[in-house]
Amino acid sequence: MLDEIRVDDAVFDLRPDFAVLAMTAHGLTNGPTDDRSRAWLAAASACEPQPEKIDAWKDAYRGFGAKPQRTRPSVDALTRRMPLPEINLVVDAYNTVSVRHALPIGGEDLDRYDGPARLVRAAGDEASEEALGTPEPGEVIWRDDTGVTCRRWNWRQVARTRLTEETVNALFLLERLEPMTLEELKEAGEELADLLTRLSPDVRIATRVIASGK
């Protein structure tokens, strides 16, 4: 699965500084928020804001014609929801890392995915859920063989691949723009892997970084 994930050259043309750390986690045990994940969320909520990282994502949105005040990058929307919401153990874990690093992170249920994930600029005719609407031509989207999985880079995910308390196998997409370094991106991946391992000691985790020219 990891080897098949790809980012279109058109996305790198738009933002050569883009990189994504893709992580698969097999054998998760998810469940409702508990004292462990509640403490993670509380600690992340107390972190200092990092507006320069969020501003980079706003610029990226403007680059393909989106208005970031109307459809906010996921990390911008998340950091405006303090204290952080309680969702479920696995989502709490990646939201914690997202806010700590001002880093957009998507979580997908691998068992509901159809083919490999790829980040592309939309043609405008991709199948999408009614609640999200059809992507506009040139919009940056994540998709699989069925259709859109996340609109406007990381704005909003479809319900089809959402992580639930029944999720066992997951794909996480940690998305970086400068000024975040590749080293910090990898550190964030290690932090997420650590939290997932605390939740599910037998989880099997693999990662791959995809960047321009690599």
Rank of each mutant, 00 (worst) to 15 (best):
M1K: 05
D3P: 11
E4H: 11
I5H: 08
I5A: 14
R6K: 15
R6H: 14
R6M: 07
D9S: 14
A10M: 00
D13S: 14
D13M: 04
L14K: 10
R15A: 14
D17H: 05
A22F: 15
M23E: 03
H26R: 15
G31I: 11
G31C: 07
D35N: 12
D35P: 00
A39D: 13
A39I: 01
W40D: 13
Q50Y: 02
P51V: 01
E52P: 04
I54G: 02
A56P: 11
A56C: 08
W57F: 07
A60R: 09
Y61R: 10
A66Q: 10
P68Q: 02
P68M: 09
V75R: 11
D76G: 00
A77V: 01
L84G: 08
L84P: 08
E86M: 09
I87E: 07
D92S: 05
A93P: 12
Y94N: 08
V97E: 02
V99L: 15
R100T: 14
H101D: 14
G106P: 05
E108K: 00
D111G: 03
R112N: 09
D114K: 15
G115C: 09
P116V: 02
V120Y: 13
V120F: 15
S128D: 11
E129L: 04
E130P: 13
E130R: 08
A131M: 07
T134Y: 02
T134D: 02
E136H: 03
G138V: 07
G138S: 03
W142H: 11
D145H: 08
T146P: 01
C150R: 00
W153T: 14
W153E: 01
W155Q: 13
W155M: 03
R156V: 03
Q157I: 03
T161N: 14
E165P: 06
V168Y: 00
N169H: 10
A170K: 10
A170D: 02
E175G: 10
R176A: 01
P179G: 08
M180P: 03
T181L: 01
L182G: 11
L182T: 01
L182Y: 04
L192P: 09
L192T: 03
D194F: 08
T197C: 01
T197L: 07
R198G: 09
S200T: 15
D202L: 13
V203K: 13
R204N: 10
V209R: 06
A211S: 12
K214A: 03
